[in-house]
Structure formats: C-alpha cells, structure tokens
C-alpha cells in the first residue's frame, strides 16, 4: 500500500522496448505540447477554420522566407504525433488483446496504417507546390478582388477577360 496514492496503475517498465516506449511517450508528448498547441492556436484562434483554404495553406508552406520553417514544423509535428498516437493506441489495445498471435495481427495493422498515413502526410508537406493559376481562378469565381501581387496580376487579368 506504500505508493497507493496517486501512483495508481502507472508503472514504469523495467526495460526493453516498453521502457523505450515509455520514454518516447513523455519526450514526444512534451514536444507536441508546444507544436500541437501552437498549431491549434494559429489555425483556430489567430485565424479560424472558415478562413482556411488552399490559398491559406499555400501562404504558409510556399512562403518565400518562412515556408521552410512551417514545413519543418508540420513535418516534426506529424512524425511525433503519429508515433505518439499509434503507440498509445497499441498500449490501449494491448490491454484488451492478450493472445500473442492476435497481438501480432493488431500491431501489424496499427503500424501499417500509421506508416501509410505518415507517408501521405509527409508527401503533402514536402511535395507541395503553389498553384498560382488555381488560386487566381478560385478568387475570380468567389468574387474576390484579384491578388495584386505582380506575379499573379497578369494571369488573373487574362482570366477576367476570358469570362466577359
């Protein structure tokens, strides 16, 4: 009964993979406090979900000077969150799936799904290229004043003429 208060069921694993996972959950968790809460603060508090669209994403990932920073931020966030979140799911499911061969199946499914998600997410972050033509067309169709930056105005004026 010595450590009953507060200790509850939390037990630090003695060693091996589970101990590494134990440290991983804490270190990645602390980093995610900054990365994920910062991300939420930017997208939901400073901006809001209704102002987010293709042009907004492009203004972050394809920004000439800060684009690299946001891509590194998002790439770290997705990697940490995927390994943290799916390891959490594994730990939860391990309490319900006891049979070793069933665990192999569950773990295989979990990690395959995780790597697929991490793959498409990283692909989106790393391979994104701003599509000026699409942004101009979108702004035109939604009654927005065409972007006045020098690179976009010729294209948009062409589009304006074509619609008349």
């Amino acid at each position: 009964m010595a450590k009953r208060s507060g200790a509850g069921r939390r037990v630090k694993p003695a060693g091996g993979f589970e101990l590494l996972a134990w440290y991983w959950m804490r270190i990645s968790g602390l980093l995610l406090v900054v990365l994920a809460l910062g991300h939420l603060f930017i997208t939901h508090i400073i901006y809001n979900v209704e102002s987010i669209n293709y042009a907004f994403v492009a203004s972050r990932w394809a920004a000439p000077k800060t684009g690299f920073f946001w891509r590194i931020w998002d790439l770290s966030m997705i990697s940490l969150a995927m390994f943290h979140g799916f390891n959490g799911l594994r730990q939860v499911l391990d309490e319900y799936v006891i049979n070793p061969s069933r665990r192999v199946v569950v773990h295989t499914l979990i990690w395959s799904f995780m790597f697929a998600l991490l793959g498409i997410g990283s692909y989106a972050i790393l391979m994104f290229q701003k599509d000026e033509k699409y942004i101009n067309q979108w702004e035109l169709e939604h009654g927005r004043v065409a972007n006045s930056s020098p690179s976009t105005s010729p294209a948009s004026s062409v589009l304006v003429d074509s619609t008349r």
């Binding site: 293709y54 994403v57 997705i78 969150a81 995927m82 979140g85 998600l117 498409i120 997410g121 692909y123 989106a124 391979m127 994104f128």
Partner: peptide
C-alpha cells in the same frame, strides 16, 4: 488526426 491528414493530402493531390 487520421481525417486531418487525409484532408490535408488533398491540398497536394
């Protein structure tokens, strides 16, 4: 997050 990663993939695709 599963939903969010899939919808963000649309940005590129």
């Amino acid at each position: 997050l599963v939903i969010h990663i899939v919808d963000t993939f649309f940005v590129v695709a």
